[in-house]
């Protein structure tokens, strides 16, 4: 474990907590893409499937973190699609999730480190995570604005994988550990946030709201 990975996981936890707080406090999921949250839930379940296959004692933080990720993302989906369904902006959350799931699944069958069920699921989860934020970015481009709290969520969510890139550089240099699939997907994932990062740093940090040119 290195500082980059630690802060990456903390940033990820922060993103999940910020979104939950936003929805719970405002009792509304306006401006939040339900599809992105569904895709993240699928990512966690397919990536941590080993938790279900053979029960492991919760002695170490890694197992606990995985359970937190899975339960928090499922709970977020529950809030969006059930509890606060009336505030879900389905009209603007219109990116076809199938266009992300099918290519990720196909690619996972073609490019993977080992052709076995667990490995294919893990690879699918990595590829899907790289593009899972697209419906959320698409929704913001459709509505033309993002609530400040949602911008903080996106900044924490984008920073998590950016910090993981630093973690991979660190591990390559000090542990000569390389996980090519995770690295390539992580770079793609972080690149997708670039224009948002620019808007966040030039606007939100100065207290302005993100409003996209219509």
């Amino acid at each position: 474990m290195n500082i980059f990975r630690l802060f990456g996981d903390l940033s990820h936890l922060a993103a999940i907590a910020i979104l939950l707080l936003k929805i719970w406090k405002t009792r509304s999921c306006a401006g939040v893409s339900g599809k992105t949250q569904l895709l993240f839930a699928v990512c966690f379940i397919t990536r941590y499937i080993d938790l279900f296959l053979h029960f492991v004692s919760l002695y170490n933080t890694e197992k606990v973190m995985k359970l937190i990720y899975i339960s928090a993302s499922v709970f977020t989906c529950y809030l969006i699609f059930f509890k606060f369904k009336a505030t879900y902006d389905g009209n603007h959350d219109s990116m076809r999730a199938e266009f992300l799931i099918v290519p990720a699944a196909g690619l996972a069958c073609l490019i993977n480190t080992k052709f076995d069920a667990i490995e294919i699921l893990w690879t699918f989860s990595i590829y899907l995570e790289a593009v899972a934020i697209l419906p959320q970015l698409f929704l913001i481009s459709k509505t033309g604005e993002a609530e400040t709290i949602t911008s903080h969520y996106l900044f924490a969510q984008g920073s998590y994988r950016a910090l993981y890139i630093l973690n991979w550089i660190y591990r390559y240099h000090y542990e000569s550990h390389v996980d090519t699939i995770a690295i390539v997907a992580g770079v793609v994932q972080t690149i997708l946030y670039c224009d948002f990062f620019y808007l966040y740093i030039t606007k939100v940090v100065k207290g302005q709201k993100i409003v996209l040119p219509a």
Partner: peptide, 10 residues
């Protein structure tokens, strides 16, 4: 089912 030790990250 041996978990792939290669993926030791979240």
């Amino acid at each position: 089912m041996i978990r792939n030790k290669q993926h030791d990250e979240l």
